[in-house]
């Protein structure tokens, strides 16, 4: 069962570390000061949250968080491909933020009842932080999902959705996690996510395509990534790798 729990923790931690790094790329570039601060704050939250999960992994016998974060190659990361895509234009980053954070908030709400007490405690803590991220995304999706900006957001939505469906790629331990009440599973998460994003999108002029007609872009959970991840990891770990033993 430990391997199943590790697999679950790795995908959450890696999602947060990578989306956190991508969010941080908006620092200094946001379309307005408030958005610059928002993406930077969310970046700091996400990276801090990933540390909490890497600490749980360390307790289960994995290497220390810095080694795990900075010394692995792309094919050892379990994040979904959605989070590793470049920030692109603001419309794409906003839509990704909306699709990802709704899923993440629901995942943590589900994990708040996990049979693994350490995971449940952490999830109960983080769900309040992520609620801020979701509220931020919803405010802007509602504001920009109508009128002149609608078309750009619609295009970004259609581009991002197949990747977003890759969030829910099932683990090879899926049934073990479900039957032991550790996690209710990706399919349950996806169903709740779909109704959650639909509620927001119906307040805009954006159209959610029929998701059953889309082919999810999967593989990330098993180390299969786009060409965008390795350059991100190289940049993120550049300073660390100059002297891995340095005491900061």
């Amino acid at each position: 069962m430990t391997e199943a729990i590790k697999d679950l923790l790795y995908k959450i931690a890696d999602d947060q570390l990578i989306i956190g790094h991508r969010n941080s790329e908006w620092t200094g570039l946001g379309p307005m000061l408030e958005e610059d601060i928002a993406f930077s704050s969310m970046a700091q939250d996400k990276v801090g949250q990933s540390l909490a999960f890497y600490n749980l992994l360390h307790d289960l016998g994995e290497s220390d968080p810095d080694t795990v974060a900075f010394m692995r190659n792309a094919n050892q990361f379990h994040n979904c491909q959605l989070v590793e895509l470049p920030i692109g234009e603001y419309d794409f980053s906003l839509v990704r933020h909306f699709l990802f954070d709704h899923a993440e908030m629901i995942r943590f709400e589900m994990l708040s009842n996990s049979a693994v007490e350490e995971i449940a405690q952490l999830a109960r803590k983080l769900v309040g932080e992520i609620r801020y991220h979701v509220m931020h995304a919803d405010v802007w999706i509602k504001q920009l999902g109508v009128g002149d900006t609608r078309e750009r957001l619609q295009k970004a939505l259609e581009m991002a959705l197949p990747y977003a469906l890759g969030i829910f790629e099932e683990s090879k331990y899926e049934q073990d996690l479900i039957s032991n009440d550790i996690f209710s599973g990706e399919q349950a998460l996806r169903d709740t996510w779909q109704s959650s994003i639909t509620t927001v999108l119906t307040e805009t002029e954006l159209q959610l395509p029929d998701l059953t007609t889309l082919t999810p872009l999967i593989g990330g959970r098993y180390g299969d990534h786009s060409d965008h991840l390795q350059p991100l990891l190289d940049e993120m770990s550049e300073v660390f790798k100059v002297d891995p033993g340095a005491d900061w």
Binding site: E34, I37, A38, S41, Q44, D45, G48, Y132, H136
Partner: peptide, 9 residues
């Protein structure tokens, strides 16, 4: 409220 994010988390 101007923004829910500020100079510290």
């Amino acid at each position: 409220m101007k923004t829910p994010f500020g100079p510290t988390l």
